[in-house]
Structure formats: C-alpha cells, structure tokens
Design a protein around this nucleic acid. Sequence first.
DNA 1: GCCGTTTTCGGCCCGACTGTTTTCAGTCG
Length: 575
Amino acid sequence: MDKKEIARTLEEIGTLLELKGENPFKTRAYHNAARTLEGLSDDLGLLVKEERLTEIPGVGVALAEKITELFKTGKLKYLENLKKEFPPGLPGLLCIPGLGPKKVKILFDRMEIHSLGELEYACKENRLLDLKGFGAKTQENILKGIEYTRKHQGSFRFDQAYETAEWILKAVQKMPGVLRASVGGSLRRRKEIIHDIDIVASARSGVEKIMDRFTRLSGVEEVLAKGETKSSLRIATGIQVDFRVVSDAEYPAALLYFTGNKEHNTAMRGLAKTQGLKLNEYGLFRGEKRIPLKSEEEIFEALGLAYIPPEIREAEGEIEWARKGKIPDLIEEKDIQGVFHAHSTYSDGTATIETMASAAQKLGFKYLGLSDHSQSAAYAGGLSPAKLKKQWAEIDELNRSLKGIKILKGIESDILADGSLDYPDEILKRFDFVIASIHSRFQMNEEAMTRRLIKALENPYTTMLGHKTGRLILGREGYALNVDKIIETAAKRKKIIEINASPHRLDMDWRYLKKARDKGVKFSINPDAHSPEGLKDTFYGVGIARKGWLIPADVINTMPLSQIESFLAKESPLS
DNA sequence: GCCGTTTTCGGCCCGACTGTTTTCAGTCG
C-alpha cells in the first residue's frame, strides 16, 4: 500500500471509531495521522524500513505498527475486526449534512437503519420523531440531505477522476497495437465534476485484443459493455470508463467528438454543413470522401477556425471567436511565478515554513505567500498577535538565508459575522497581503452575507477575497450571496478574487470568471496548500482559469517577484 | 490514539449554531 492508500485507511478507522463512540481524541489521532501522512514528503518505505515512523508528528508506537502492517501486507487485522462491528453501508450515512457519528449510531442501534434508502423511508414515515435528540426539523434536514447526496451520486471530483484516468491511459498507451490515445470528455475539458472517464485510442490492428486487455485491467469491478470498437467498465472506485478504439485516420475526429460538450459539437457540425462538409465522429467529409487530416488542429484549420483549446469547448461563444481568429492565449501552468495562500505548522498546515518554502522553490515558484489562519479560527490553530510576531521573525530570518525564493507575510483572516477582519488595523497593516475568507456563520441569508462580504472587500487592508462561496465540491453548497454585487465591489475597490485551486473548492466558479474579468477584476490562483504536496494543486486552478478564458495578464501571480512586490505595496493603504 | 514531562497520567481547541430541550447534546469548522 502506498502513502495515499494508508492515509485513506487510517481515515476509515477514525470514522469507524467515531461510530463506535470511542474517545474523540483517539479518533482524532487517526484523522490527524491520515492528514499528516498524505502530505508527507519523506519516502514512507524508508521510514518503515528504518523503523523511524514515530518521528512523524502525530504517529506513536501504536500507529507506527499499524502503518507498518499496512505498508507491508496491504491489510490490517485491527481494521478487519472493526469493520465486522458495523454493516458496510453505515459510514455512508455520515455523508449527509447534519448527521454525525452520534446520530448515525442512534439510528442504527434503535431502528437498525444502515442505508440511505432505509433512512429516507423512515423519514417519510415520520419515524424519526420518537428518537431522543431527533425532531421534525432534523427529519426534514435529513430528507434534504438525502436528496442532495442522491443528486450527486455517480459524480466525482476532477482530481479523483483524473488520477484514475491517468493510469488507465498509461496502460492503454502501452498496449500492443495502440498508436495514439488520449483522455476525452469532461475530464479533458477540465470540468470540476466528472461523471465518467472517456478514453479514445487509435490502433493499426488487433482491436479485439486491445479490448480484451482493457476489460481485464486491474481494478475493474464490472464490465458493463464490450464490443468491437467500444467498451465500458466500472472500476472499484465506482466510476465508469468508456473506451473507444478507432483507426488512426479517424482518430482526430473521434477525439474532437468525444471532447466537446454536446452543444459545442452540434455547433461544429452545423458550421461544417454551411461549408458543404460533413463532420461526425469518423472524420470530416466532402460528399462521401474523407478529407485526410492528421490532428484536431487540422480539422479546425480545415473549417477556417483557430484552434480551440479543449477547456473552452463548452459552447460559450468559442466557435465565433475562433472564426475571427481571436481565441486568447490562455494561461498555462508555466506562467505561474509564485503562489499565495499556504498554511504552515503555525496553524493547520502539516509542514514548517521552511519546508513549504523549499517545496515551492522546487516547483519553480519565486515567491510563497504564507497565510496561516487568524486568531478567531480556533479550530485551525489561528494565530494570536504574539504568535504572529514570532512567525514574522522566523520569516525574516528565512528570507535572509533562503536563496531563490521569497516568503511574503500574509494571513488568511476570518471575515467575522459583521464583515470586519480578525485583527486590529495596527496588525493588519503589517502584512504584505491579506486574504479575507469566511469560515463560520454560513447560514446567513443572501442579503446579510452579501453585506458581510462587501464590508470585507471595502476594508482597505483586504488584498483578496478567499474561496468566494465556501462550497465544497460534491460536499456542500456555497453560501447564499449576490455574485454580481461582489464582482462589482471587487472591481471598484481593486480587490483580487481568489481562484482557490484546491480540487475540493475550485472557487470562484469558472462560469463567473469571464464576467468578472470583463468588469476589471484580477485574480490569483491559490493552492490553499496545507502541505508541500498541496502546492501542486495550483495545477487544478490553472485548469479552471483556462475554462474561464483567462490569460496571464488576468492573474496576478504570473507577475515576477519584483513586480508583485511593488504591486502589493501600491495596493497597500499605507502608500 | 499522541504527547510531554511539574513524565507514566492528564490533557488534548473551542466557540457558535441548531434543534432539541428546559439546560444541553450534537455538529461544524
């Protein structure tokens, strides 16, 4: 088992122990260790071999033994026994907002409810009302939660699907006879939620054998369909993979067809028709004769279009722009010069400032905008003024000794209920930048929440607005707010809006980026990193920025260090 | 479960909200 799988397993143990009603500090120890492990940059195999696991903070003798057993055997007796105590569906109930371990346990102990279906039925029968601690409101909220969970079944976050798609694609590319292969569909368009994985390949011959190999890939749970050119299967994580094999001459058109959204494809076919051509998944045809084209680029060219990057094939005007040759040069990962929004062990990050800085440097960044949590965020170890002073001294020291990377002093300040920031002005003015974010009091109505955010944006010390809606993809709806007013205020006050690059957030949503940009808003692509590994999430943010048609000039962290420093100084209320 | 030490146990983050209760338990971040 690798680091990630072990982290997931520890997470599972923590959850089961919560259901069991174990000491909350014990369950937290498992969750903490899982998080630390996931962000661990050391070679786990080496730590196991040298019996140095207990050097990892939060890992003691007991956890070290379990991690070792998992690493060596892929199994854990302790977990297997634990699992026997509960029906398999029970932990799934914890996905419902408002249902925690205590309530789930009551539902199971008193009513033997251990699946969504049973729970829904019991709610509809009003049977939850008799349970201690439950009432009409709870029942109503559970029903709403079930509906939400149902709506998103068969959905996966981009990063989950991407990881799976990458290894399947690699396996396909290695199969004998395969000439070209690519991921298609919504994954290639970098959508934040994915329903299935599309893989398109071309082959010279031996398609039958390729299909055989495909359906026998490791991790396949069920073969849903297997034909001469198309197969579908479901893999263990639950995601469906559709695989299409065509001839190499057909490949460009097939890839095009399996990438664009439906409306984009319809529009492309319509355009071809106006030119006396026919476009389908097998090629571009004049009459019955296929026009020989080697790539997607050549198809666009043959239709008189500039190349349209996959991310924007969403039927949002891109074909019109391509006809005019005006498709912008979208931002790329290599354009990013540095990143803001990173946490360290000062608050809830897993690594020291120094470790984070050298990890950032290894990724090619020239600056790291450190932003731990502010004092109100007790749940995340928010920084008291005294702790801040210590942190600033440490950063000054590191900036003297580190070469090639500069650490910028920032904070992720909670936006309090009344819209004010979390420190007095004399502290706020000492930061290089301030990210203002909401972490509590989500339930305000739209008007109050909008007012709260506007007040935060009007604060002269605010540099940028963090994760604008607080949504968690497939986990929680964002809070109610008036997007237009927020965009307007940000533009007027020259405040940056964060594109939170965590694959759990991807907030602000790409659908609003173009609009905000046109109003004059600038953005920052922020990894919201809680570990060195987390810095790489910048990749997901770039994808979302591309979906929003952004170019490097729209994104402040494409500026080199000297420029960003004078930019931050200029935006500061002190200047 | 971990951790630290005034070390082998006791503390571990805590405040706010919601929906239940009638003084508080559970959930959340």
